Computed example of a mutant assay.
Amino acid sequence: MRLSQRLDELHAKVRSNKWMGYFTTFTRLALVAGFLMAGYVKISGERFTDLHNNQPMGHFLEALYHTGYYYTFIGYAQILAALLLLVPRTVVLGTLLYLPIILNICILSLAVRFEGSLLTAPLMVIACIYLLCWHYDRIKYILPFNHPPTLQLVKDDKFPKWFFAGVLATFLAVGFTVTHIYNLLPRNTLKYCEKQCADSANPEGCKIFCEGIHQKGQDLNKSLDIYERAVQNDKRK
């Protein structure tokens, strides 16, 4: 059996389940809510956050705010992606626009260790990929497969417990990963940053790291290097 035929059969089975349909609608609306407010803030010309400029994400967002109409353009793109997701006929187009935007936010959040979107951004990327899989019958023609006719859907009311167990497992796995991938975070304020120092490998080095970020405006990587050197010096003693 050809791969394309197997994918068609799997897609038909999934699309025929009403519970999967409910989950898909929820996913669409969650993504819409995620971009409507974020886009509106940019279009209205307001700052997206009140983070201090010395904080890595705050520094980036402050610079982004001063890019003029580029800042506004991002807002319009987010609003457009959200509106396209609301209309069933344009869901695929909306997802294709949404995905590169949220993927960029996801990589940015991981790069600067920003807690505000460290969990939500990866989950939103996964949600977009799920929607593309849900609409596989619309996008399969750009894939390098032979494409048999789309199979007819047969109504299925059985609750897909294994799918939703997988959704829960994915949520927990992403949550656990993003909360344990870094041993040190810049956090949003100096006080909040220093709270993690008691459990760090070098509490004093951790405090120097936090002060470097929030008081001196040091680069994140430079501050991390200083902290790692302090940890290595402790190990040599």
Rank of each mutant, 00 (worst) to 15 (best):
T95G: 03
V154L: 12
V14T: 12
L220G: 04
N183L: 09
T72L: 10
A82D: 11
T90D: 00
H180I: 14
G58E: 08
L36C: 11
H135D: 03
S223E: 13
A63M: 13
C210R: 02
V174W: 03
P148T: 03
V154A: 12
S109N: 15
R229C: 02
A82V: 01
W134Y: 14
F26H: 05
I139N: 02
C128M: 08
F73V: 13
E115C: 07
A165E: 09
Q152N: 13
D219Q: 08
R2H: 12
V231L: 05
G45W: 07
M124D: 10
Y40L: 13
L80S: 11
H135P: 05
C210L: 06
R28G: 05
Y40G: 07
Y136L: 06
P203V: 04
E204V: 14
D156W: 01
L7M: 09
I74K: 08
H52M: 12
M37H: 13
I102D: 01
R229Y: 14
R138E: 15
K140S: 14
C197S: 00
C133H: 08
G94M: 03
N202I: 05
N17V: 07
I208T: 15
V87E: 00
F35R: 04
V92D: 04
M57N: 10
Y192D: 14
F23W: 14
D199H: 09
V87G: 00
F23A: 13
L123E: 07
M124I: 04
F159E: 09
T90M: 00
P122N: 07
K207M: 07
T170M: 15
F159Y: 13
G75N: 06
L93W: 12
A121T: 06
Q78N: 09
Y98Q: 03
G212H: 01
P144F: 03
V41G: 05
Q55I: 09
T25K: 15
F145V: 09
A230G: 08
N17S: 06
I208E: 15
L83D: 08
A77G: 02
T25C: 07
Y136I: 03
Y65D: 10
K207C: 06
A121H: 05
K18Y: 15
V87C: 00
T170V: 15
G68H: 08
Q218K: 08
Y192L: 12
A111P: 02
E204I: 13
Q196H: 12
Y76G: 06
F114D: 04
I129M: 12
I79K: 05
A81H: 02
L143M: 11
D199C: 12
F23L: 08
L151Q: 10
L153N: 06
G58H: 00
L61Q: 05
